[in-house]
């Protein structure tokens, strides 16, 4: 297919849509958590207010790498979101929505943020980055084994994976690969940095980790980046395990349910130590992932 400027604009639209969607849903989730704790909770658009407030403040900068890292982070994440299909028929770049792009282009954004945080010269930031990378090493391997199973069955294009699940006679991979679904969701919790695995933010412990030196527009841009990252990760789960979506409303519904479930689980949990995160992921999720891959690939039992 030929790529025109229109594809880029659609991609940018998807990234913007993802930002708006995730920011609203995050605000709603703050409300839900508030109600869970018998509070009134903030307004649903509170997250927007926070972000725009940060953009309006006068920030401090620790040198060019501090700024450049933030730009690279936001740029990388916007680029990743541009490849994301919203439904099985609507995406920006056709069949180029290869799964590996999401994992590895996301890493560019992460690298940018890590670089910028370390460039601030604050030791908490470096410790936070160290923890984030270690957590990544933990959750990514079981997740990739499940992804291997899915790609082996349905190919590596996200649209293709959605269409495979939507085809008559096939189930969602959450049902077809039940163990894989569990592993996928636990890994998603790790990716989102939700609470048992929230080791790298840990405000009371390492003063919010990588974010320690940010204020004003840099922090605002990192918030935008964070929202789009969450959009990418939750959408990946929806497309990979929940059969994707045939229209935008089903997508929003599935998205909302997945994110809210992760958030609710997060709110009744404490925090792991960083080595506990690693040993946790290399115990049950990895074993479940291997068992699932073995069942699905070698025995061919896919419901």
């Amino acid at each position: 297919m030929s790529i025109t400027i229109l594809n880029f604009l659609i991609g940018l639209g998807i990234a913007f849509f993802g930002f708006v969607l995730q920011t609203s849903i995050a605000g709603l989730n703050r409300k839900i958590v508030g109600r869970l704790q018998k509070r009134v909770g903030p307004r649903w658009y509170q997250e927007f207010l926070d972000i725009f407030k940060l953009l309006s403040k006068r920030a401090t900068s620790h040198g060019w790498i501090f700024d450049f890292g933030v730009i690279m982070a936001l740029g990388g994440i916007i680029a990743t979101a541009m490849f994301m299909p919203l439904t099985s028929t609507f995406n920006a770049f056709g069949t180029y929505d290869n799964f590996f792009i999401f994992v590895y282009l996301l890493a560019v954004g992460m690298l940018g943020m890590a670089m910028s945080a370390s460039g601030s010269g604050n030791p908490w930031a470096s410790i936070g980055v160290m923890r984030a990378l270690t957590t990544m090493l933990a959750y990514e391997v079981p997740f990739m084994i499940i992804i291997l199973t899915i790609i082996k069955i349905a190919g590596s294009s996200l649209t293709g994976i959605q269409l495979y699940q939507q085809a008559a006679g096939n189930n969602w991979f959450l049902i077809a690969l039940p163990l894989g679904g569990i592993v996928g969701f636990i890994s998603l919790m790790g990716m989102l940095g939700k609470k048992p695995f929230e080791t790298y933010i840990a405000p009371a412990e390492i003063a919010s980790g990588p974010m320690v030196e940010y204020g004003g527009k840099q922090l605002g841009m990192l918030f935008i980046m964070h929202e789009i990252t969450v959009f990418i990760e939750v959408s990946l789960f929806v497309h990979l395990f929940l059969g994707g979506a045939t229209n935008i409303f089903i997508f929003i519904l599935k998205y909302f349910l997945v994110y809210t479930l992760a958030n609710l689980i997060s709110n009744v949990n404490g925090r792991f130590k960083i080595d506990q995160v690693v040993t946790f992921f290399y115990k049950w999720p990895l074993i479940l992932a291997i068992v699932q891959a073995f069942i699905a690939i070698y025995l061919g039992w896919v419901i």
Binding site: D67, M72, L74, I78, A79, I224
Partner: peptide, 20 residues
């Protein structure tokens, strides 16, 4: 696309208030 994303991010960065 990566270059495009970085350009967008750079535009956001540059129109906002200069940092100290």
């Amino acid at each position: 696309v990566f270059g495009f994303g970085v350009v967008i991010a750079f535009i956001i960065f540059i129109v906002l208030k200069k940092s100290k």
